[in-house]
Simulated scan of single mutants.
Amino acid sequence: MANSPSGESVAQRIARVLETFDADRSVQTVSEIARRAGLPGSTAHRMVTELVETGMLDRDRDGRLHLGMHLWEVAQRGSRALRLRQVALPFMEEVQLRLREHTQLAVLERGEALFLERLSHPHAVSNITRIAGRLPLHASSSGLVLLAFGSEELRKKALSAPMVAVTDETPTDPAALRELLDRVRRDRLVIARGFVEPVSTGLAVPVHQRDRVVAALSVILPRDAPTAGAVDELRRAAAGISRALDAPFE
C-alpha cells in the first residue's frame, strides 16, 4: 500500500481512523475523526468516504459516522475470539445464574486484557468492564491471570513499564507484583480486592486450550462478599470451557 508523506501506510491510517471510535464515542463527525486520528481534514474526508463506500463505516441522516455493520460482519468470520466466546458462553451463563454477579471472559491483546463477553445482573456490584473494552494487565483480575501465564518477555515488559494506579489498591510496585504473579501461577487464581474499583473484588482463573492459557474467566463481587463459592463456580466453568475447546471442532 502507498505510504503517506509521514511514512505511514494506508492500512496504518485506516486503523487510526477506526480506533477513534470507542464505547463512549460511537458517533463522530469527519472533523472529530480527523482531529483524533491526527490526520489532515482532506485526508480524513477522503478516507471516511471510501470506508463508507466499503461498509466499514456508516453515515447517519445528519452526516455523522459510526462503525459499519460490514466491519462487524468481517470481524466475526473465522475469528478465534468468536469460537472461544461461543464455547464459553453456556458455562458463563451457569456461573452468572448461580452467582447473579458480573461474569466475564478476557483474552490477551497487545499487552492488555480485552473483554470478549460480559454477563450481568441488574443488582450486581459496580463494574467498569465493557464488551470489547480493555483494562491494564496489572490492574484487573483477568489481566493478572493473563500476565501470570503469559511469556516471560510479556512479564518483563509489564514490570518495567510505568504502572498506573486505577485505585489506591492497584498493585504498581514491580517487586510486589512479581510476588503476586508467582502466587497466581501457584494457585491458578486471583482474588483482587479493590484493584479496579474500591467497592468490588475481582476473581479470575485461567482457561486452557491444549495446555496453553488462552483466556481468563472472572467474576466481580461486592468488596466484602465471601469468595469460596464463587471460586468453585469459576474453576468448574473454566474446566468445562477448557475441555470443550480441546474437543474436535465440527
Rank of each mutant, 00 (worst) to 15 (best):
G41E: 08
A139W: 08
R13F: 09
G68Y: 05
V10Q: 15
Q76D: 01
S120E: 13
L177F: 12
D62E: 15
P174R: 03
A175N: 09
L105E: 01
V10R: 15
V74R: 00
L116V: 02
S151V: 13
G240S: 07
F21Q: 06
V166R: 07
M47N: 02
D173Y: 08
H123E: 15
V17E: 03
R83A: 05
L51S: 07
S140D: 01
T20S: 13
A124Y: 09
A132F: 13
V184F: 01
A37I: 08
E233C: 12
T172H: 05
A225H: 12
V87M: 04
E152K: 06
S26I: 09
S79Y: 01
E169V: 13
V196G: 00
L180Q: 12
E93A: 14
L89S: 07
T49P: 00
P122R: 12
G7Q: 14
L203F: 02
G78L: 06
A161I: 08
M47S: 03
A192W: 02
L135P: 03
A148L: 03
S200T: 15
R185Y: 06
R185T: 10
L18Y: 04
L51E: 07
D232K: 14
L217M: 03
R210E: 11
T167Y: 10
R35G: 07
R35I: 07
L105R: 01
G78Y: 05
L116M: 00
H45S: 15
P40I: 05
L245I: 10
V214P: 02
D62Y: 14
A237I: 03
S200I: 09
T129M: 10
H123R: 15
P122H: 09
L116W: 00
S242I: 13
A247L: 07
G240Y: 07
R188N: 07
A44I: 08
L51W: 08
R80Q: 12
A238C: 11
E93Q: 15
A15N: 04
H208Q: 12
S26T: 12
I14P: 00
A113Y: 02
V95L: 07
